[in-house]
Write a protein that binds this DNA or RNA. Structure first.
Lengths: 357, 357
DNA sequence: CTGAAAGCGCTTACAG
DNA sequence: CTGAAAGCGCTTACAG
């Protein structure tokens, strides 16, 4: 039974398109078989240039849009990539989305999103359901989801290929993109040391995030290379939140014996440190240099603007999508998945300067 | 020809699932026809409870996941909703996504995203391409895309139903959800007046956004109701950016004749005003009360925390998805689409207090 | 309350 | 270089 009514004649008359042209319509218009249309659209070889042009012309004339459901059902690809995330930060997620979509568009792929809670009881269920019903061609994972063993296992069990952004462990398990957090933290510390600071406070990140450890290592490494012994009371635990940064600032800035600079493991905490300084009438950067990490939009939304570390998140996400689309994320020698380290960018703004004492 | 190999026996042996069960497998397992399985899964009536349970049991046993592509190709629904946005702000978009997805999950829908540039040359093309190839069941539009006549036209021409979030004009054209910007701005102004402020500065929003006009009207209305004549030099143009807020602050706070409170049309500008005050050693809130609008995360990431207006964005987005899923966004009397106004929330924090003079 | 048949719009595997 | 046939996994429309 024919289920949808075609109204080409009517369409031409009224100017309205109630239906969409199918591959059959294009084939008829071009005077070829649907297989040939399929060849042209999929850029398969062995099509005469003349035939090819006729198909393209017919396709354009009818404003043909291949039906993704049909392609997916018949073929092995769904042209859908899934992004699973548990909001590290809206700005970060936004960049990941834009980067991934830009690459997807080049190849006719689309991006579906699945915001999830890292501590959800049925996290695996949500992942499995989405991958199976949508037949996702690939999955992109951001921290901390990218390090959840349950998620990785379920993806592998259903045979889905995936790329991890900034994974912390088991990098030999699947494709990934990331940056060198340790080197970046070291570079920032060097920046402060170069300005003349020798007494630098450090606010640690959330203990569950692998990046926290690496950033601290980079900080200590930089000090060590200059022969500076770190003072235990200058290193304070934080949780990546504004409030934890504020509290760290209160501790580090109490009393006369205080550091001339503070390096916080992310921007939110750096803003907290700045707020604490403001409250104590300690001028930034004149009396205290403050540095962050991440280059969030907020880094430019404070006074003075924050010196921080930026990552090419758009590009990292685009490459993640690329690994999925090209199939590189699926086909790799066991234990040797493709991985790529991106450059960071040390952005010096107004919150750091030479020490006044 | 059979194209995919089924390896049930092997699966059982190895414990790996290389294939996914289909409706045929479930039907066989339950001893019914595929039509009956379809009925149960789609919650259609006329199925014996006993049969129904057998199907459900078989479905669970085989871990059956209906293939969305097949459902979409055969039926009239794709179970896909598209979200088109041009980043008003990452935090806003993030909330919209989470709200929409939460409602989608309840009904087995998924969300695809299409970040677009409002000034893109081929904006219509991107929209048309996505809607046609994905067979989107519905589209959600955020400002300023929701007011782009080209986008609305192309959606209507392909017969897509859509819901606009916070549209500014032609509300009779399609379904929408929104809030009362004027009433919210009036409430904020009343808050400042109630504290005892009579000389209040106002920073206008971006002239292209409908909300800007409404917020200014609310501000003026509140003053008018107390018989206070607005001073022209107390109203400054802004562009919703931190920098424009900072510059507005510099103008409003120069000299001794300055307002005791400033109401900025969004949080970013309010933060700019606060930065300007800090630079001028004007204490907030002691010497100057500052109020914002939007309740962005940054509102709590400053010192003092910002008094502002919050919107139930999650809920608004969930209702938008609901209107699409239930079909209410499609079937409505001409010129009378469903629309819903949500309550705002005046959140008083630390940046506003009684005037000191 | 249940099912057999046809069809959705593509791709795959072959044949020529 | 091109095409006819079969099939992907569902829903629709109909019959009983």
């Amino acid at each position: 039974m024919r289920q949808s009514r075609r109204l080409w004649a009517a369409d031409l008359r009224t100017g309205t398109e109630l239906t969409t042209a199918t591959i059959t319509d294009v084939a008829r218009e071009a005077g070829v078989s649907i297989k040939t249309v399929s060849r042209v659209l999929n850029r398969e070889p062995n099509v005469r240039e003349e035939t090819r042009e006729a198909v393209l012309a017919a396709s354009r004339a009818l404003n043909y849009r291949p039906n993704l459901s049909a392609r997916s059902l018949a073929g092995s690809r769904s042209f859908l990539i899934g992004l699973f995330f548990d909001n590290p930060s809206p700005a970060y997620v936004s960049d990941v989305q834009r980067g991934a979509v830009s690459r997807c568009r080049e190849s006719g792929y689309h991006l579906t999103i699945e915001p999830v809670a890292a501590d959800a009881v049925d996290l695996e269920g949500v992942v499995e359901q989405a991958v199976s019903t949508l037949r996702l061609d690939g999955v992109i994972l951001t921290p901390p989801i990218c390090d959840d063993p349950r998620v990785l296992s379920v993806l592998e069990s259903v045979g889905a290929s995936y790329v991890r952004i900034a994974p912390d462990r088991e990098k030999g398990r699947a494709a990934w993109v990331g940056m060198d957090d340790r080197a970046a933290a070291q570079a920032m510390t060097d920046h402060l040391l170069d300005l003349g600071h020798v007494d630098i406070g450090f606010v640690k990140g959330h203990p569950d995030h692998g990046a926290s450890r690496l950033r601290q290592e980079g900080f200590l490494q930089a000090l060590a290379e200059r022969g500076i012994a770190p003072r235990d009371d200058r290193i304070v635990q934080g949780w990546f939140s504004f409030r934890s940064g504020f509290e760290a600032g209160e501790r580090l800035l109490a009393g006369a014996d205080r550091p001339t600079a503070i390096f916080a493991s992310n921007d939110d905490m750096a803003l907290g440190v700045m707020a604490s300084a403001t409250r104590r009438r300690i001028a930034v950067p004149e009396d205290l240099s403050v540095a962050g990490f991440d280059d969030t939009p907020a880094a430019r939304t404070v006074w003075p603007q924050l010196t921080t570390i930026g990552q090419p998140i758009l590009e990292m996400a685009a490459v993640a999508a690329d690994l999925l689309i090209t199939g590189e994320a699926r086909d790799f020698p066991a234990g040797h998945p493709p991985g790529r380290v991106f450059d960071f960018c040390l952005t010096v703004r107004d919150s750091t300067t030479r020490p006044s004492r």
